[in-house]
Design a protein around this nucleic acid. Structure first.
Lengths: 328, 328
DNA sequence: GTGAAAGCGCTAACAA
DNA sequence: TTGTTAGCGCTTTCAC
């Protein structure tokens, strides 16, 4: 939106120099006569003057804006995280822009370049590929990663409690008597959240877990599930690795003549509001996406403002909560 | 992110003036020697020079940024709409910032002011209160509204097909033999989406519809629903006005000894992915939130770039689709 | 074909 | 206590 009235206009109207107005705007009125202050205040009120952020940014060389580069804005995890980021930034006087890469690496790289060109103060990256070599071009003082983590940490990274909570949750399932549990996921593809949860699964389920990995989208998965359900002597259970995979799994078993918790146990990573409306409700691991957003933002802002250099990249783990309902 | 190499640096290295570099960057090389071009290209590649958007914005007086002021970022409708907005803006070379007001009017007004200060090129407003008088301060050339509409249109507004699709959907329910249908909603509170859908409901259901309005959050609603279900001679149906209200309604009837479609019919405005995973799936009116986002963005960008002044505010209605599943 | 220079709206020394 | 001034990094008119 174009700005008509400038600092000069105000200065002229008040009869002082632009510098004085600038001082006033920035609260440097230690040594300003009350009269000047009052006159300035009056003119500002009357004209509705608002300093241009763009001009300010140019001279201070800081836009006070955080850029969020999202792998997939439609991921249900994202909106709550964004709310956290926004609230944290707002509290510290920062604005926020975002980009969406639709899970395309090239697009993500382009977004990052674009954000840099916009001179954002710092970047929060929910990456398609946290291990991408080009990420090394970015300054670890101005970037923090969320959700997915790189194998070798280069940036501070805020993630949810993938391993521990998965283990704790599976332990609860086992306590309920489930000996055979299947891990249901979209292709692991080296994606850290999936890999880590699967690793935790493998650790808890020592018994030959390889054929207990069910990959969504895979040929003949439905038949496979049906066979499992038909042939099991003991009641099996399924653990889906996130909200979308629970959804896909539910679709799949929907027209099979089996239902939870009578024919099988069911549990999932990620708690979305609709899971409690299912009948019966599905027990879930609830990620605190809001807290993840806040933590990532504060971590970044702290680095930006305090500049705690030379510290090596840190992994910050936000605890999950286990929500027991009636699915196993 | 701070920019080190500037246009001057490049100019110096190439041995030309900054102006020439600027011409080059903006594709004004009609009359530039191939040699100069090549030299510039080389230095740029080597230094990784990227012009500062901030400086460009200051001189061109346009940030090429669209600000989206959101009433509630966690609304499931929002993320898909944002994706549409983002894609449209990207296509036209615009960046996008957002603000979230958490359904607080004051907060929204503050956000709007902030966006203006950031000199955004234009604003897309998903308003808490589209009728708020202060909105009149904004230029209709640089603002379009989405989702909720004002009683008297001041800005171009993009909404979903609230009335027609509700009527069509209810007609389908009636065809199936449901005589008594209840409209389930969060408090109407003058919110256009709710009001419009309810109006459509009233038109279709001529028979004394007043006590057929079920307001979520209302004292004793659960008992009321139970009574309806117990006493009905004919099978009643419920129509929820959006995703969150379907969710709330499902919670409510969850531990009642009744289920759809045997004891009652069920349908909803807004189709969210989990509705197809419910068993049975819930029939729904699917809004094309992606298209709404795109349309809003393009509408705004067109105004910004072509400046079709003097046209009066227009209401753009994006058609919905009816998804029949097995809930009535 | 290319350069000089003014200026976008603001801040921050330094003067006065 | 307030004003002067020199930029911030870029675009663009006008000259050469």
């Amino acid at each position: 939106m174009s700005k008509r009235v400038t600092i000069k206009d105000i200065a002229k109207q008040v009869g002082v120099s632009p510098a004085t107005i600038s001082y006033y705007m920035n609260g440097n009125y230690k040594k300003m006569s009350d009269e000047t202050k009052a006159r300035i205040a009056a003119v500002i009120a009357e004209t509705g003057y608002q300093p241009s952020k763009v001009a300010q940014s140019l001279v201070t060389r800081d836009t006070k804006t955080i850029g969020v580069a999202l792998a997939d804005i439609t991921n249900p995890f994202t909106s709550t995280m964004m709310k956290g980021i926004y609230d944290a930034c707002k509290e510290r006087g920062y604005a926020v822009t975002f980009t969406n890469s639709d899970n395309a690496v090239e697009s993500e790289l382009a977004s990052l370049v674009q954000l840099r060109q916009q001179n954002v103060s710092g970047i929060i990256l929910d990456s398609v590929d946290p291990n991408h070599p080009q990420l090394a071009d970015f300054d670890s003082q101005q970037l923090v990663m969320v959700d997915r983590q790189a194998k070798i940490l280069q940036f501070d990274t805020v993630v949810s409690d993938n391993q521990d909570s998965t283990q704790a949750f599976l332990a609860l399932m086992k306590e309920k008597g489930y000996e055979t549990i299947y891990f249901v996921t979209f292709p692991l593809s080296g994606i850290s959240t999936r890999e880590l949860r699967y690793q935790a699964f493998q650790e808890v389920m020592r018994q030959n877990p390889l054929d207990h990995l069910l990959t969504l989208g895979e040929e003949g998965l439905k038949d496979k599930v049906e066979r499992i359900l038909n042939s099991s002597t003991e009641k099996p259970a399924f653990f889906t690795m996130n909200g979308p995979s629970l959804l896909a799994f539910l679709q799949l078993v929907k027209d099979l003549p089996f239902s939870y918790p009578v024919d099988f146990g069911l549990g999932t990573y990620e708690d979305l509001d609709w899971m409690s409306a299912l009948n019966p409700g599905v027990s879930a691991i609830r990620q605190d996406s809001y807290a993840i957003g806040c933590e990532a933002a504060f971590c970044l802002l702290d680095k930006l403002e305090e500049g705690d250099f030379s510290r090596s990249a840190e992994l910050k783990v936000v605890k999950n909560q286990i929500i027991l309902r009636d699915s196993f």
